[in-house]
Design a protein around this nucleic acid. Structure first.
Lengths: 134, 134, 134, 134
DNA sequence: GTGGTCTAGACCACC
DNA sequence: GTGGTCTAGACCACT
């Protein structure tokens, strides 16, 4: 698994995990319908608590990125991914605004900031083209 | 004071306050050298505890956005604002990347995402009356 | 715990605590990676409030002497200790200078003063059991 | 006057002032029996409160570095300076020890630390040689 | 049980 | 009146 956790970050571990799974989906490393490791094995793999993995999976299930099947276990949403909701836009705008404000105060120009955002977007889609595409 | 807090949010109040003060600086509503309300008065104004305000002020002092002047109380950094540090760039890149991943998965195009970032940057500089337009 | 506080001192309790923890690291009584007592237990142990302990821990975390690990709680920085920064040298020089001035005026010779500093340095490394003797 | 205050330091202004006056004595810039500026004029000169200057003078009078005469005003102790008291030694040792501990942890060698202390001592006596050396 | 956050109320040093 | 410090007691998220 490509997940890397920072155990001393102030960001909760389950959120780090959820975020990285989304990044995995965005980059194509995780494909729709693909099964995810069981809670137990992923927890062991990452050296964290069962509950933590469980919580991450639940967050993603809640938002529609995952499905939990009795038999297949947890799989990436095989159908359509969640759409752009109002609440997502609100979160996005708010968080970008906070970052933009600090960037601006620190003297980062508009173009430098936007360039940075563009690169971030491309970066998450980066691994898409050339992975083993399993 | 233009600050608006969401006491129900999961984001700590002191962080909301700190963020909004930075936005205030970015927009020119708060100018370098300008005094901030005392912890007590701002706390009373916002209906929160003075320690919460204090913590917000301290976070910003720590990063160099504010100064605590023996005489004048708390003021906006009168000299040069903090520069673009490595750690800021790391935080910026990481957070934007997380947002970009989710945006991408939800079907937001690169141009739509970047456009959104651009608008956020402009928005924080929007209310600028006549500050350092750079 | 070897910490001894003077609750009457004009030096803040949390600073006394932070200083003594650094002395503990310097002397090898606290080793890198070693866990520290929880804020609650240490507070109870020392008969002070948990917030006071918390503040001491935070000061040291801020400067890189401690890490707050999601799993293990608070631990002594397991990797490299903070280096000699410009700001530390400034603090060191300034404080030593103030002490040297008073010592000089009170008639303490250069050699006596330096001897005293040497002994202080050796004293903090005194109790070292077998740490990095360098 | 050679005094330089840092109004945003956490060290009280009156202590900064007192310390610098002692440094002035140590360096010979202020000589025994020499008159100091009146509270009023020094306060005006430094742009600080009367009370602040007063407090600094009182601290120094208390410890025997100054004398206050009805007629001559405030003068540097014309007779023997205060001696090396037990309490001074205790303060000196304690403070140096705290600094030594941090220096040690940050990787400063014994010789580097002692060298630094030596230089500080010489620095405060530096301006002596060139004075009128009464 | 851990640290993080928030509140309430208090005292103190400084200016 | 200002910020700094300390206490007491509480809730919460995370593991």
């Amino acid at each position: 698994m490509f997940v890397e956790l920072d155990l001393q970050s102030e960001e909760p571990i389950y959120m780090q995990l959820a975020d990285q799974l989304i990044e995995g989906i965005a980059s194509g490393q995780l494909r729709p319908g693909e099964p995810l490791p069981s809670v137990r094995s992923l927890a062991a793999d990452l050296g964290i608590n069962l509950h933590t993995v469980n919580k991450a999976y639940n967050v993603l299930k809640q938002e529609g990125f995952l499905e939990v099947h009795r038999k297949k276990g947890v799989i990436i949403q095989p159908g359509a991914m969640p759409a752009i909701t109002e609440s997502f836009l609100a979160k996005l705008d708010h968080q970008v605004q906070v970052l933009a404000a600090e960037a601006s105060v620190r003297g980062m120009s508009e173009s430098a900031f936007v360039e940075r955002c563009l690169r971030a977007y491309r970066h998450v889609r980066n691994n898409m083209s050339g992975g083993t595409t399993e």
